[in-house]
């Protein structure tokens, strides 16, 4: 299994926000959900994607010339990549002297990933950390994800799985058996909203929740708090009740304030961002929603993430 390849778009060392201690987070590419607020738009499509950073481009046209598919085009707005024709071969990225073209997504075997992340083992040991599989949805590439988890376990490294709960038959069960900690992303407990916002029925998350509870695997629940979507008392109360009833053993429930840092990434990928221009939440809002969550039964609710600073734009 260790030679099974995965498409990974980032391996983040010294990661402090994806589980206990110091960690390395392995971001798998491809996700079954289509949340409009997604912070990592480059994580959604399963195939590698080339993006262009205009600020670095020297406009020498070499990338257009080297593309075997003729997918790289130079126009009035700079370089664009015809996604339909691009095969992700990476010739343009390898050429670009200025690193203005970047490939989101590299094929790596589970063994390669393991060998890379195991190098920080001393830091995991000393800090009580380890490796987190995140994405995208790591379980959308089940063979590689499970293979990596197995290798990490063999090396004695703490493994956290960050998942939206949606996976193929039997995959989640197997993954839970290999994980020391699961980070479950729970967006909303309202079936209609869940389907409308993520494109996936809540039932599937519900099923995952039951499986996690039965397995009694250590669990942290994470809920994005997004203006216009989940950032209402109603929504948060619903999620909190879901956690209290279906996931009673959750050790933590993190409410993650919406972040707009991804705006530039949407532009690079040539996709519209549904929340373009929407301001950050106020810290007071997060505080209140956190109280609502606790009052509704999610006793370990806490919040983090960027919030609005008064007069931010003026400085």
């Amino acid at each position: 299994m260790s030679d099974v390849e995965a498409t990974v778009f980032s391996i983040q060392q010294f990661s402090t926000e994806d589980g206990p201690g110091l960690r390395t987070t392995v971001f798998f590419k491809g996700c079954p959900m289509r949340c409009p607020w997604c912070h990592n738009p480059e994580s959604i499509a399963p195939q590698p994607e080339v993006v262009w950073h205009g600020g670095r481009c020297l406009n020498d046209g070499g990338c257009v010339a080297v593309c075997p598919q003729g997918a790289v085009e130079s126009g009035a707005d700079g370089i664009s990549v015809a996604r339909g024709r691009c095969t992700g071969c990476g010739d343009c990225v390898a050429y670009c002297p200025a690193s203005a073209l970047e490939m989101h997504g590299t094929r790596m075997t589970a063994k390669d990933i393991h060998d890379r992340v195991v190098r920080d083992a001393a830091f995991y040991e000393e800090s009580g950390g380890g490796v987190t599989l995140s994405g995208g949805e790591p379980l959308a590439q089940p063979a590689a994800a499970l293979g990596l988890m197995r290798l990490l376990r063999e090396s004695g490294i703490h493994v956290a799985l960050d998942t939206c709960g949606v996976a193929g038959e039997g995959v989640l069960g197997e993954a839970v058996g290999l994980a020391d900690l699961v980070l479950l992303d729970l967006k909303t407990a309202n079936p209609a909203n869940h389907e409308a916002w993520t494109g996936v029925a809540l039932d599937r998350v519900d099923k995952a929740a039951r499986l996690l509870t039965e397995a009694a695997v250590p669990l942290w629940v994470r809920t994005p708090v997004v203006p216009g979507y989940t950032a209402t008392e109603n929504e948060i109360a619903g999620v909190a009740r879901f956690v209290a009833e279906a996931l009673p053993h959750a050790e933590r429930h993190d409410l993650l304030a919406y972040s707009n840092l991804c705006t530039a990434k949407y532009a690079q990928l040539g996709r519209p961002f549904a929340l373009d221009g929407v301001p950050l939440l106020f810290p007071e809002t997060m505080e209140r929603l956190c109280e609502v969550a606790r009052a509704s039964g999610s006793m370990h609710a806490r919040w983090s993430g960027p919030t609005r600073v008064a007069e931010a734009a003026a400085s």
Binding site: E17, D18, H39, N40, L261, T263, K265, G305, A312
Partner: peptide, 22 residues
């Protein structure tokens, strides 16, 4: 870096940079 997300500061748009600096 924020939870589950990372970006290079210099790649961000100016307004968002301002917000982070503030």
């Amino acid at each position: 870096r924020v939870t589950g997300y990372n970006a290079y500061f210099t790649n961000l748009g100016r307004e968002i940079q301002e917000e982070i600096i503030a």
